[in-house]
Computed example of a mutant assay.
Amino acid sequence: MSGVELIATATFGLEAIVAQEVKDLGYQNVSVENGKVTFTADLSAICRANLWLRTADRVRLKVGEFKATTFDELFEKTKALPWPELIPADANFPVEGKSVKSTLFSVSDCQAIVKKAVVESMKTKYKTQWFEERGPVYKIEIALLKDIATLTIDTTGPGLHKRGYRRLAGQAPIKETLAAALVLLSRWHPDTALLDPFCGSGTIPIEAALIGQNIAPGMNREFVSEKWPSIPKELWRQARKETHDLANYDQPLEIRGTDVDNEAVKIARNNAMEAGVDEFIHFQRMSFTEISSKKKYGKIICNPPYGERLSELREIEKMYKEMGRVFSKFDTWSFYILSSHPKFESLFGKPASKKRKLYNGDIKVDYYQYFGPRPPKKRDGGLIKENGYALTT
C-alpha cells in the first residue's frame, strides 16, 4: 500500500470546509460530494488526516466502487478487489453497511455477502479456510447509493469528534467537529477577542483555542489504523512530531465563555484543562444579558438553546428578542449564531448578513452570520498589520 484514495466523511453542510482542510494539508486532488470529500495521497495522509482534520467525521480508505444491482454482482465484484493486499491474515474485519435508493435495499444481506466475498478473496492468498480475527481491526463499510457500491475501510476508530478532552458534558452538547466548523466559518483570527455567552460545556471556546494555537485536534488520542502493520510506525511518529512542531503554544488568546448554569461552567473549565488550553480561556457564570467587553472589535460565536419542545418555545423566542437587544451594544463586533428557529432573524430584530444551512445532530439549523465593521489596519514599523497578519506597503 503506497498511493491511497481516502474519503473524509462530513456532516451535511460542512463538505466545503472539510475539503479546504484537506487542501490546507497539501492534498490537491480533491473532489466533493454530499457527505464526503475524496482525495488521493501517499500513505502518510492516513496519519496526517486523522490527526489534523477538525471538521470531518472520520477518514476511510477507499477499496473500490462499482455498480451492483444483484447479490451475485455484489459478491463477484467485491471478491475481485485487493483485500489481501490491505488486510492481514489475523485481522478482525467486521462489515457494516447502508443502502439509499438502491435495488439492493437489505443492508443485513449486503453485509453478509460482502463479508463472504472478502473471506473468499483472503482464502486464496492465505491458504486457510478459517480466520480467527483476533488481530487489528479493519472495519469494512458497504455503502450503496443509487445502485453504486462503495467499499471502504475505516482508519479512524471512534469518530474524529472524540478529541479526548470532553469527559464531562452538559445537556445537549454540540459536537466538537461542528464547533470547530463554526469557528472556521467565522474567519476568526487568534488576535481577535472571542466570546461565547452560551458556552455550556465549553466546546466552542475550546475548539477556538485549539485553532488559535494550531494544536492538532487528534494530538492526544489514538486511531485504529495505528495498529495496522501496513502503515510503518515511522510514518505515525513523523506525523505526531509534526503536530508538536507546528503547535504555537506562545500565541496569546482572548477567549471567554459564559453561561448561566454554574455546573456547566465547572464542566467547561474541566474540559479546557483536559484539552490543555485552560489558561487561555476565561469561563464565568453569567447570564447573557450581563455580557460586556472593553474590546472594541471581536466576535460572538454561540449555540443558544433551541426550544425544540413546544412548551419551551415562548421562552426561547423571548430570549432571542433579548439577545438582539443585548448584542446591539456590541455594535462593532460580529455575531455568529446557530439556531433551528425559522423566524430567528425577525425575533433577533435584524436580518443576517449571511446564513448557512447545517445540521446539529439530527436537527436542521441555520448559522446566522452578522458581519461587523472591519477593524482598522494597524501600522507596525514599515508594515501594516491587519488581524495580526503583516502586509507589505
Score class of each variant (00 low, 15 high):
I300A: 03
M1E: 09
D90I: 13
E312K: 15
F223M: 06
E274D: 12
W236F: 10
G200E: 08
A172V: 02
T258N: 05
A112N: 12
G170W: 04
I255Y: 08
M273E: 13
T203F: 11
A352Q: 01
I300K: 00
W130A: 03
Y367I: 08
G276I: 08
W333Q: 01
K79G: 13
K385T: 15
Y370H: 10
D196N: 04
A49L: 11
E73R: 02
I148N: 12
L338F: 06
L14S: 12
L253Y: 14
F66S: 01
M273I: 12
L168A: 13
M273W: 15
G381Y: 06
K321L: 02
A89S: 09
E132D: 15
D154K: 03
G381P: 02
H244M: 05
L6P: 01
A89W: 03
E85Q: 12
D245Y: 11
E76Q: 03
M219P: 08
R167S: 08
G170I: 05
M319D: 10
L168N: 14
D261Y: 01
G324L: 01
Y320M: 00
P197D: 14
R325T: 14
E73M: 00
F93T: 08
G382P: 02
I87Y: 03
S293L: 14
Y138D: 09
C199S: 12
C110P: 00
M286I: 00
V183P: 04
A352I: 00
L86P: 04
L210W: 07
P88T: 05
L184R: 10
M273V: 09
E234W: 13
I267E: 09
E386T: 01
R221E: 08
G135I: 00
K101S: 11
F280S: 06
S346V: 07
G26Y: 06
K355I: 06
E254L: 14
L53F: 03
R379L: 02
S2K: 06
D261L: 00
S328A: 01
I142K: 03
E226D: 08
R48K: 14
L86C: 11
L184Y: 05
K343E: 11
R54I: 09
F93A: 04
A68C: 10
R237Y: 15
W130S: 04
V18K: 03
I46S: 08
R285C: 11
E15V: 10
V118F: 10
V265N: 03
E254A: 11
L253R: 13
A247V: 11
N220I: 05
S311R: 07
V37A: 11
L310M: 06
T103E: 15
A180D: 07
E33T: 10
T103I: 13
L235T: 07
M122G: 05
E141I: 00
E133L: 07
H161F: 10
